[in-house]
């Protein structure tokens, strides 16, 4: 597997040189591999958003470098826009960035800036609108007439339409109801599977992240705490709870089973997995159940 995005000793200090100097992130070293879905988790103010604002050059690092395909993104300042086309970032509450008369035109904003041909734009738009679970009848509507969840999905489609190598989503499910959350998460997972695009998802919900991620980045007090597979990160349950982060309830349950001496897997993040694991355990006769 090849590394697509890398950070070396990345640090960023807000209001440098004044009394309000605050380090938002400190010495972050990361290597994100192509095609993976990486979750970024951390408490409010842990530096998650600052970190991703470096991935597409919205912020210029105080110290350290960000490498995209092995090249420093700030090597040529005038080419920073090209970096933004390759690393598509969708910020928190992206529904507030919609501005065009129709959904079609709004999704076309990114591709037009890339100087894509009209034919290509048309094809791309029809493709991405399906990725976000909407149909073509939405394309002629005004984005301001849509519901909150639909607006959010149109905004995400606007970033997907740039065909980025890396798609970064900051809190894509914030403020949505459970159904909307699950929908967005499964859309993202689906997108990654179908396009093979590297996807980075920021969230503060462990439950959400663990369902879809291959690896997890845990940020704590502007530093990188863990960067590993979901299973390995959750094995640090105690340290995580000290950081004010909780592992999913369902995983906690299986960790407790393990502790009591039952032979179960501990990388259980969904109800479905839990059901299978429990049935397996019962099948083995590890537990006596009355009534069956």
């Amino acid at each position: 597997m090849s590394v697509v995005l890398e950070t070396r000793d990345l640090s960023y200090i807000y209001s440098k040189g004044t009394a309000y100097e605050v380090a938002a992130i400190e010495n972050i070293n990361l290597k994100i591999e192509k095609g993976e879905l990486v979750g970024v988790i951390g408490h409010t103010g842990s530096g998650k958003s600052t970190l991703i604002e470096h991935f597409n050059g919205i912020l210029n690092p105080t110290k350290g470098t960000v490498l995209l395909d092995g090249k420093d993104i700030w090597e040529d300042k005038t080419k920073i826009r090209n970096v933004r086309f390759k690393v598509g970032v969708c910020f928190q509450y992206p529904e507030y960035q919609l501005f065009e008369e129709t959904v079609y035109k709004d999704i076309a904003f990114g591709p037009r800036n890339m100087k894509m041909s009209e034919d290509e734009i048309d094809k791309t738009i029809k493709k991405v609108i399906k990725f976000v679970g909407l149909n073509e009848s939405y394309l002629d509507k005004s984005p301001f007439d849509l519901s909150g969840g639909e607006k959010r999905r149109v905004a995400i489609a606007g970033v997907m339409a740039m065909n980025p190598e890396v798609l970064v989503l900051d809190e894509p499910s914030a403020g949505l109801d459970p159904r909307g959350r699950n929908m967005i998460l499964s859309l993202i997972k689906n997108y990654q599977k179908e396009t093979g695009c590297t996807v980075i998802v920021v969230s503060h919900s462990m439950e959400d992240i663990s369902k879809i991620s291959d690896k997890i980045i845990v940020m704590n007090k502007s530093k990188l705490a863990f960067y590993d597979t979901v299973k390995n990160v959750f094995s640090h349950a105690e340290e995580l709870s000290e950081m004010g982060l909780n592992i999913p309830e369902i995983t906690k349950l299986f960790l407790m089973f393990k502790e009591k001496g039952f032979d179960v897997k501990t990388d259980i993040f969904t109800i479905e997995e839990a059901k299978n694991e429990l049935l397996k355990l019962l099948g083995k006769g590890g537990l006596q159940c009355s009534g069956t």
Partner: peptide, 11 residues
């Protein structure tokens, strides 16, 4: 915030 979001789309 909006400026950053549009910059991310190549504005």
């Amino acid at each position: 915030r909006i400026t950053n979001a549009q910059k991310a789309r190549g504005a």
